[in-house]
Design a protein around this nucleic acid. Structure first.
Length: 139
DNA sequence: GCCAACGTTGGC
DNA sequence: GCCAACGTTGGC
């Protein structure tokens, strides 16, 4: 299983929106960046991801799961853009802030730290465990 | 709200 | 195929 991180501005699409979709989940649409799209194409059913609030949150707030593999993005006719569906699994007991992540030397290689503009990113298994621990939340 | 960093576009 | 111009993202 692989691990990922999904970024969204909470005002546009936040954790509350995501949890409201329940087990059915929702398309992670609107991505218009090749790297982010390629990451989504690599996702398998059941892969887990962090849900990160950018710009006005700056923290990882919960865990999501891929519930549909890559398919055409329904918000465009342009066939270059695919997306997956994700569903909320559970919130973090304690959200993990960007500040905390930056301050932890074990997380210095994270894409979140080094390429903050990539909206869908891979997360290593070690990083996953460390952040779940910081969030006081098990998978 | 600003602006640096990054990605994309399009003229040459 | 290069690169200047432009648009967008996201931390501050």
């Amino acid at each position: 299983m692989a691990y990922w991180l999904f970024k969204s501005e909470p005002d546009v699409w936040g954790w509350d929106h995501q949890t409201a979709k329940g087990e059915q989940g929702e398309e992670w649409d609107g991505v218009r960046n090749y790297q982010a799209r390629n990451n989504m194409r690599a996702m398998k059913l059941g892969d887990k991801g962090f849900f990160y609030h950018s710009r006005t949150g700056l923290e990882i707030v919960g865990i999501v799961e891929v519930c549909a593999e890559a398919h055409p993005d329904s918000t465009t006719d342009d066939d270059r853009w695919d997306c997956v569906d994700i569903k909320a699994v559970r919130p973090f007991v304690k959200p993990v802030s960007l500040e905390t992540i930056k301050a932890d030397p074990r997380l210095s290689e994270m894409v979140l730290v080094n390429n903050s503009r990539l909206s869908v990113q891979p997360v290593s298994e070690d990083e996953w465990r460390i952040i779940c621990d910081l969030g006081q939340t098990e998978i």
